[in-house]
């Protein structure tokens, strides 16, 4: 008999997105532009992360009207964000039929201890992570896809580089360990031993991992792929740039051809001004979104 919402079906959906770009959009028009540029999915939001920063206050799930307009506008998958630990926002998004829920640190957390028990949902979840322990905790809660966090809405790639390098380095370390070292490593990382054993044996994460949080140029997207990401989320970068259409197409091509440097030269030309960006040292600790999630 048909089984819905299985681990294979949820993780498989993310596998179909590999080598692709997922773009933040705030209305039907932007969603259509993203689809035409070759995005593999769109993230329907009320505000992109840089505007969430500017607006301040509590950031919550988007108005369902916006999400529905985006779902009607495109045939590619539509994702939407709920607050960390907000079981009901997640149920609302599932009920609307969004294809993927992002339990996201970009929004203000609803729970300061617990994330959503994602195994109980039919719809797959993507979650952010800064290191292997955080990544494996999210998978054990049922996340079917991960994204390294970076620092959203900054247009500054430095945190994204830090997080993907850390995760990849920790995977290499775990793969090289002897099995009798893994129990202690699980304790150190705060990660379930069974998942750590899986990483040890396969040398990779059990789910697809995209990079996010600070991609502002085609070269930034290619850098994330070079460092081992399976694909890229671009948030504020696209629609805060001077020429969103051209920029979106360039990021898609750069992601799929990240080692074709002649092509990257062409893709980087005449894009106009990218988003302005924020130097990380000017952010206060409580303005760092990546610190949210536990």
């Amino acid at each position: 008999m048909a089984q819905v919402g299985t681990e294979r079906v949820k993780r498989g959906m993310a596998q179909m997105q590999k080598n692709g770009v997922i773009m933040d959009v705030i209305n039907a028009e932007q969603a259509k532009l993203a689809e035409a540029a070759g995005a593999v999915a769109v993230m329907a939001l009320e505000r992109v992360p840089s505007d969430i920063r500017a607006a301040g206050g509590v950031a919550r799930m988007a108005d369902p009207t916006i999400v529905e307009q985006v779902m009607k506008a495109v045939s590619i998958p539509v994702m939407a964000k709920c607050r960390i630990g907000h079981i009901v926002e997640a149920r609302i998004l599932e009920s609307m039929g969004v294809d993927y829920i992002d339990e996201s640190e970009v929004l203000t957390p609803a729970d300061d201890k617990f994330h959503v028990n994602k195994r109980e949902y039919r719809v797959p979840f993507v979650c952010g992570a800064r290191n292997l322990g955080e990544a494996l905790r999210r998978i054990s809660e049922g996340a079917a896809m991960l994204r390294t966090k970076g620092e959203p809405g900054t247009g500054n790639i430095v945190e994204a580089v830090k997080h993907i390098r850390l995760v990849q380095g920790q995977i290499r370390k775990v793969a090289a360990m002897s099995e009798d070292e893994l129990v202690n490593e699980a304790k150190e990382l705060g990660a379930p031993l069974e998942l750590l054993l899986e990483v040890h044996r396969s040398g990779q994460l059990p789910v697809v991992n995209f990079a996010a949080g600070g991609v502002a140029t085609p070269a930034d997207a290619a850098l994330m792929m070079e460092l081992g990401a399976d694909g890229v989320f671009v948030g504020s970068g696209i629609f805060k740039s001077a020429n969103p259409e051209k920029f979106a197409r360039a990021v898609v091509e750069a992601t799929m051809n990240f080692q074709d440097y002649d092509l990257l030269v062409r893709l980087s030309k005449d894009l106009g001004e990218p988003m302005k960006g924020i130097e990380l040292s000017t952010l206060k600790d409580n303005e760092r979104m990546a610190e949210r999630g536990w």
Binding site: M1, A2, Q3, V4, G12, E94, D99
Partner: peptide, 29 residues
Amino acid sequence: FGRQRDSFEADVAVSGLSDDQPFPSVFIR
């Protein structure tokens, strides 16, 4: 078959294979 929440796995009889066992089939959108 609908959106992602309707994606499913099922055993499907596929003809022309090396044996008659149903094929474990994953349908994603």
